[in-house]
């Protein structure tokens, strides 16, 4: 049936398969949760890096960028690895249980493929969410040479972080069908608390 098909048909077939795997393995909800959780982690950790650098007197954008990127890579790898291992263990256990109940080897079935796709999707989302979100927060620092002082870079990065937290909150609000602004404000408060504590612990300049 899949004899000679055009790349477009192959793509459509791939998307159909992907949707079918999602129906079987139900990974969309887990991936959505991982996206929100890990993007939140990524933003708050980068706020920590920025505030730590600021109170420590770092006034070189290069140092902040290197520290921030190293942190985002570590978060990305942590998310990817951790989620891959945890998800594959969980999915493997589920499949083994199903095989035991049905007394059938399900290794080469659609169910096993759906399970493998679920592991990859969740691991990629888990890894990319903190990595990308922290890179976005660091973005103003890349333009620090164009800014009057690095303090403006710090301030802009914090504004970007708070704006991202607000958007993330709105995303969560849209999932549960509640007030977008109220959820947005709640996530922003987490960022403000993080900034305030780092500021107080580090000693304001």
């Amino acid at each position: 049936m899949r004899g000679r098909i055009s790349p477009r048909q192959r793509l459509a077939q791939g998307l159909d398969d992907f949707r079918e795997y999602e129906r079987i393995a139900g990974f969309w909800e887990i991936a959505r949760r991982a996206l929100a959780n890990n993007a939140f982690d990524g933003i708050l950790t980068t706020i920590g890096v920025l505030m730590g650098s600021y109170v420590a007197g770092v006034r070189s954008s290069g140092i902040v960028i290197r520290t921030g990127i190293a942190t985002s890579i570590a978060m990305g790898i942590s998310g990817l690895w951790g989620a891959y291992l945890a998800e594959s263990a969980e999915r493997g256990r589920e499949l083994a249980e199903l095989e035991k109940i049905s007394l059938t080897d399900l290794g080469s079935t659609k169910i096993a493929r759906a399970s493998r796709v679920a592991v990859v999707v969740v691991a990629v989302v888990d890894g990319l969410a903190p990595f990308i979100s922290s890179l976005i927060v660091l973005m103003p620092m890349f333009f620090a040479p164009l800014l009057p002082t690095i303090i403006v870079g710090y301030a802009l990065s914090i504004v970007v972080a708070l704006a991202m937290l607000f958007v993330l909150g709105m995303f969560l609000g849209s999932i549960c069908g509640r007030s977008l602004v109220s959820y947005g404000v709640r996530t922003v408060i987490a960022g403000v608390v993080c900034i305030a504590i780092t500021f107080l612990l580090g000693g304001a300049e």
């Binding site: 129906r23 079987i24 049905s102």
Partner: peptide, 11 residues
């Protein structure tokens, strides 16, 4: 036939 609940019987 003995089958898992997913994929569903519709599919």
């Amino acid at each position: 036939v003995l089958k898992p609940l997913d994929p569903s019987i519709e599919e």
